[in-house]
């Protein structure tokens, strides 16, 4: 680090720093059947809360696939979602849809030498991504591993200790690896999940039919199904919500870690990284040779989980 980049200052969360990366995604097709639009709008005005079996509103029922939404559609849908959340919980949220940044491909690295199994990442992720506590949904699973073994059968996520790390153990957090050859995307019968240009595998929660084939296909146990209509206490709702990341999910759909794309596509670091007390987590742009992540991949002995499956994860582990 050069002398000119270091400067003593009080800690700043970075929130106040202005940045020019927020950008509304512009649709590439622009074509769309007008009658559906009209029908959706008409249905939306007549939308009710369904008839007790959790039926979707008319707008939701007819909502198109994310990739066919025009900027106008998005504006309309975001307003409807904001209204819906305000009506249900009284919380004013800000729906947004930051676009992938040109030339940026995200990757993650995790230092197993320093991870101490504190699960701070797990809970920070839950708060950031509006994950429910009952029944619990968590994107990150921290495995307590036996030293001398990388075999998951010898590991457990159910450790409950006074202090970690425990003698003779090490800890391996596992979350979505944002594979470049994602078996989950191949499995989806309706293209409700896909890989974005910046490497993040996303789910259109309004398109997913809930068949759970992607859950079956994932070798990293990274996908979660909504077994009930989740409810988050209003004071725990994170109001900054991305359409493809942490917005409210309804029951019957699958969700997953998105590397906090509503944060990372606006330049910030993922919530799990910032919550890590040991600094075990590193994130950045794979295309930038000066990024932390590139330096790790080039200078450390990194490895990926289940390499033999050729899933090409974007999540590297290393001992450093």
């Amino acid at each position: 680090m050069a002398k000119d980049t270091e400067h003593c200052a009080a800690s700043s969360s970075g929130d106040d720093v202005t940045h020019g990366l927020v950008d509304q995604r512009v649709d590439d097709s622009g074509t769309r059947r007008t009658f559906l639009k009209v029908a959706a709008a008409a249905a939306a005005t007549a939308a009710t809360e369904g008839c007790g079996i959790g039926a979707p509103t008319g707008e939701e029922f007819l909502r198109q696939h994310y990739k066919t939404l025009t900027p106008d559609d998005k504006k309309r849908i975001f307003a409807l979602i904001e209204d819906e959340v305000r009506g249900r919980s009284g919380v004013t949220i800000h729906m947004n849809d930051p676009a992938p940044i040109d030339g940026v491909e995200f990757a993650y690295a995790l230092n197993l030498s320093v991870c101490n199994g504190s699960r701070r990442c797990v809970e920070a992720c839950a708060r950031e991504n509006n994950l429910p506590d009952d029944p619990e949904i968590r994107y990150i699973r921290v495995l307590e591993m036996e030293k001398g073994s990388l075999e998951f059968e010898e590991a457990t996520p159910y450790y409950d200790r006074e202090k970690v790390p425990a003698e003779g153990k090490f800890y391996m957090p596992v979350q979505c690896h944002q594979c470049d050859n994602p078996p989950c995307v191949k499995a989806c019968p309706v293209q409700a999940t896909w890989k974005e240009p910046d490497g993040i595998v996303v789910v259109d929660y309004s398109w997913c039919i809930g068949c759970r084939f992607c859950v079956v296909a994932c070798p990293y146990f990274a996908r979660r199904f909504n077994f009930v209509e989740a409810s988050i206490p209003p004071d725990r709702i994170n109001p900054t919500q991305g359409y493809l990341s942490n917005r409210a999910r309804h029951k019957g759909v699958v969700e997953k870690c998105t590397f906090c794309l509503h944060r990372t596509r606006t330049g910030r670091l993922p919530a799990c990284l910032e919550a890590c007390p040991t600094g075990a987590r590193k994130f950045g742009n794979l295309n930038d040779p000066n990024s932390d992540i590139r330096k790790i991949i080039e200078s450390k002995r990194v490895y990926v989980l289940k390499e033999e499956l050729a899933t090409l994860p974007r999540f590297y582990y290393f001992f450093g």
Binding site: H65, V190, C208
Partner: peptide
Amino acid sequence: VDIGRPDRIWHFIRFN
């Protein structure tokens, strides 16, 4: 009956 969102069965118009 195994599908979480049977109301969205028409989404098969986007066959993968």
